[in-house]
Design a binder for these strands. Sequence first.
DNA 1: ATCGTTCACTTGAACGTTCATAATGTGTCT
DNA 2: AGACACATTATGAACGTTCAAGTGAACGAT
Lengths: 334, 334
Amino acid sequence: MDVARAAGVSRQTVSNAINSPERVRPDTRSKVLQVVDKLHYRPSSAARTLRHQRAGAVGTELNAVADQPSDIALPFLTALTLSAARHACHMVPFASKEAFPLLSGYQDMVRRRLVDAFILTDTHPGDPRPAWLEEAGIPYASFGRIYDDPTRGYWADVDGAAGTQMAVAHVAASGYQTVGFLGWPAGSAVGDLRREGWAQGVKEHDVAAGPEGSAPQSLPEALRAAEDLLDGLAVGDAVVCASDVLALGVHQAALARGWTPGADIGITGFDGSPVAHLHSITTLTQPLDDIAEHLFTILDHQLAGSPEPVQAALLVPTLDVNTSTKITPKKGTS
Amino acid sequence: MDVARAAGVSRQTVSNAINSPERVRPDTRSKVLQVVDKLHYRPSSAARTLRHQRAGAVGTELNAVADQPSDIALPFLTALTLSAARHACHMVPFASKEAFPLLSGYQDMVRRRLVDAFILTDTHPGDPRPAWLEEAGIPYASFGRIYDDPTRGYWADVDGAAGTQMAVAHVAASGYQTVGFLGWPAGSAVGDLRREGWAQGVKEHDVAAGPEGSAPQSLPEALRAAEDLLDGLAVGDAVVCASDVLALGVHQAALARGWTPGADIGITGFDGSPVAHLHSITTLTQPLDDIAEHLFTILDHQLAGSPEPVQAALLVPTLDVNTSTKITPKKGTS
DNA sequence: ATCGTTCACTTGAACGTTCATAATGTGTCT
DNA sequence: AGACACATTATGAACGTTCAAGTGAACGAT
């Protein structure tokens, strides 16, 4: 190794100077580091991987088939990438054109020692992956509850109920009168929780519960549902929505009947997606950085082999107030 | 190596059976492959990297600071990931919170042998990265022209002019009368080319050139610009836009004056972004798969060390016709 | 029979790390 | 000075792969 030669020490001393500063004399260390700096030496991650039997990498699947990719997939991947760097590793995305992910794809990556673990996203009830990976002894952490067995601690998720409850608190404090809800058709785990938060919110914050409606995650259908919903509301009321797309539906429906979002009717979305920002809709931004960080904590635990169960985390989104909840004459934002 | 033992051959024969089939007898090969299959053996990519001095990985930077992440960044990354697999390698995303990318980040990844090359995105005039990388001898390929020296063959891009020209042809054929243009403020390389295509299109397709306007990539400003533009147009006319967000501005402005997009006024966007699909706006979808594939071809050339210059590629987007160019009574889509 | 050729497979070495352990230095106490 | 402890640095081995060179065996030509 040329750094060792240039510094007049052995390879191991170079290694120690970098990885175990306490094992070398300070002056030796600084001499070595100076040479490292001059030669721009960086340890080969391949050699490290080979030696440690650990890739220092985490895989995550990109959905290559979704008709509409999740709005937060990219910011989440970015958050993961930044967290990974903090944990001295890197992300390895993979994708397939299969409609359903295959276990073999996951297994191969581990066997080739390309990654040590996986971050799962878009978990849903009946998702086979957690069971697979656990059986195969492959560490993983999931963004989104593991519905089939939420006692497993291998996940972090957004507290949907807390989010919509915050939204209700906000519109109530802003002075809107009645608060309606536009959600997804009952039965989706995420959607039901978000509805729950609204229901709880109107109880606790002493505002009238308006009508509720539902539509799938598509603008035309959201628009139709929103029209019905607005028939049961009046200027000065608000609608809390389970997603930004649904909120956009309300937004459009409001415009169509001449109501100005915010001034005439309060609208809140959920996810902090580009759609919400584009249309100036108040939304609940998911704490992606915190989630990513927590998932890495989970992985570190598993990779370290610690037997104690890992805490799952339910993280509260932040309310991004925007024009769509700025009511005209009355009080300001909460 | 246990595969070798189980198959009763040497490690090298296993390696050959996998990598150089012609060097082993067919029956030996099939025997080895059978064992490989049974033991689920996969060669360690770390050991390969160490041996070959090649990571088999390509880095790409995720913008962690952009106020609004590019709408096509995720689909493009997905396309890259799929192309990478086809070229026996994988992507390694990285991100920093610096406003400007640092060369050192790129260099370190190569020195650690984490990646062999980079895919650049969002290149712009004055972008220092191509020169950096070239000087450092690091292979790269860019999605987007290398403006400072387009003779360099290390890029693939979308033919913006061809795209807007196609859009004009389409609205002309659909029966819209006058075709206006909403672009970005003059001076942006991409925007100027897209405007050029519109100007050329109205000349060639024998439709009247309507007024043109410009706005930055933000919905409120696009909306304002669109209002002015629509003042100069009438029902039955069309507007070709340089981006989907601008098109959305026109869409909203049209709705505001009671015009139904498509039926009353034609609108086309550019990029094939989720925004366009969400609002059913006809758009020019970028051929991301082809671009990714071409970029990998470029990288392969560089990594193979072939001296002959690589062809840059200008790829034509595809027109995704949607409601916003479905005119009421007249002819169908082109 | 001897020699070269070719084919099929095996062996030694090396890629760059780091662990375990051995060697050397440095100081302290008798 | 000698003995011991302890701090510091050096050496051998191994991680899994593949290149280069080597060993045999089979075969035909001399």
